[in-house]
């Protein structure tokens, strides 16, 4: 055991620690953040115009091909980004193994369900 190590002998024997996936998570969180810096302002400004004119205006907004692509990009990048973020929140605060794993799986399910619902909605309107 080297002098510099701050790990306890018990910790070394248990072998727990980094799963060596941290850098990938870190980078994915930031790359999606960079995409969202551009997508979210567009989405907000565009959406405010879309909600103003009632149902037909909303339908027409989604049906526009450029809007449809950008909406799916914005929602997709948001869901990807928030899945990564919520994963960290759960890992930070929930130490009980079973609860933590259930919440992590639930987090993934929620983000996938929301994405499929959004993709279905946009394609149903725009891909006629």
């Amino acid at each position: 055991m080297s002098k510099e190590s701050i790990r306890t002998p018990l910790g070394k024997v248990r072998g727990l620690g980094s799963a060596k996936h941290g850098a990938g998570h870190f980078i994915a969180q930031r790359v999606s953040a960079i995409a969202l810096v551009f997508l979210v302002p567009w989405f907000l400004i565009s959406l405010i115009g879309a909600v103003r004119g009632g149902y037909d205006n909303a339908l027409g907004w989604i049906a526009d091909p450029i809007n449809a692509v950008l909406v799916l990009l914005a929602v997709g990048a948001s869901l990807y980004h928030m899945r990564l973020g919520m994963q960290v929140v759960v890992e930070d605060y929930i130490s009980k193994h079973s609860t933590k794993n259930i919440l992590l799986i639930l987090n993934t399910f929620i983000c996938v369900v929301l994405f499929v619902a959004a993709a279905y909605a946009v394609l149903k309107v725009a891909a006629i």
Binding site: L47, V51, Y55, A58, L59, I62, V71, V75, S78, L79, M82, L114, A117, A118, Y120, A121, V122, K124, V125
Partner: peptide, 12 residues
């Protein structure tokens, strides 16, 4: 974002 997706879904 649940509200946003609900809005898209309801519109469709």
């Amino acid at each position: 974002i649940f509200i946003v997706v609900a809005w898209l879904f309801a519109t469709a």
